[in-house]
Design a protein around this nucleic acid. Sequence first.
DNA 1: ATCTAAATGGTAATCGTTATCATTAAGCGG
DNA 2: CCGCTTAATGATAACGATTACCATTTAGAT
Lengths: 219, 219
Amino acid sequence: MKHILIIDLHAQADELFHQLTAQGYYVHKVNNAFDALVKMETLTLEAILLDFAVPKMDSFWLLVARQTSTPVIVIADVNNELERINALELGADDYLSHPINVRELQLRLNVLKRRSQGSVNDDMRQHVSFDDANYTVNLIDKSLVLTQTEYRLFKYLFEHQGEVVTKAELQQRVLHKKLGRFDRNLDMHISNTRRKLAKGNLPRDLINTVRGQGYSFSF
Amino acid sequence: MKHILIIDLHAQADELFHQLTAQGYYVHKVNNAFDALVKMETLTLEAILLDFAVPKMDSFWLLVARQTSTPVIVIADVNNELERINALELGADDYLSHPINVRELQLRLNVLKRRSQGSVNDDMRQHVSFDDANYTVNLIDKSLVLTQTEYRLFKYLFEHQGEVVTKAELQQRVLHKKLGRFDRNLDMHISNTRRKLAKGNLPRDLINTVRGQGYSFSF
DNA sequence: ATCTAAATGGTAATCGTTATCATTAAGCGG
DNA sequence: CCGCTTAATGATAACGATTACCATTTAGAT
């Protein structure tokens, strides 16, 4: 599960809270620097969202005190250039402004993640090859023999890694038909693919399920 | 296997011979009354085709000597009204003239068959009912539980009984896709349906295969 | 008549889908 | 925070259409 820490005084952050939760993140929200530090020491965070509305000194502390390479995104007033510059000078990795677009936030997180992790994803990508003829995926030293639909599902998810792909989208783009109210076929293909992953000593959650939304691929 | 006896002197009947064979009939051809009588006593004939070009006395004998209710169709010169009248007076069931259209011949055979057998087919029809909801066919006292495709295949053939239905036609009308060069799916559905027929003590050849042409339903 | 190639019959494997039930997570009222 | 209800998901197995494969039959050629 991916954890995100939000440090914000505003009640309006509830909206952001729910949207991120819906995207599969486990969101922790605090409203002071102390609680934030506790969370930072306790959890492995995917990212930290810091609203600059918290007292400047606290913000400063936070940015200095962080030991990890966890990306910090500051929520600043876009019209207040001073805040933006301050944020970056204090060590923030990026900044956003209200209202926060969840989609944009996710994209920036992906960019930061790739940057901060070196290029782990790129390395991984080089160790993954797709054999369209035999519906086989080779990752590192394992090779996954899939059926045609499993293969195309897996490949589609892989090519959209980091994003949450809707079931409706998968049904349309991979199976070429509409998603019915009670269709479970996708779940079955995912389930079977995960079983094959497990049998190859690979993590089942290479394919992550985002309840109510769809699935996402991630290393 | 349906047997047909042709009594003809002409070599040109070879054409007719092949066409009927192609339609699934087993065709016996003789050129004299004696051989014809032997065949008539040996086989259960579907029909007899008598070319009036054979000596009048032989034709007369044949028509008189036949014990069975096997329909006799005389091949007469359409322009020779005398022959036509003679044929019917002598007891022929119908007449045709050269060149013989196989399709027309089949239709006339169907008519004669239904007439001669009383209305067995009609009786049968009354004992056959289709349950579209459960893909089940009830004939007389047996009930055939089929799968959806088996059911639709069976019903389509039933509704076209007497005709030879092409595989291409079945594939298009029942399965809604084109018939590929090496497709065997129809054969399998037919095979499985026949097995269910056999399990219900019903004749497998209710569905007749016409090699190279397709299948036909007949009681 | 014998031989070859195509057509057909039939058993079994493959795979997509559906049925069914167990498990999990979110929402809700206390 | 706690138990309840309901929808979403995981997973085993049944089901059914298609395909693979091999045996058998048949038409046509030599």
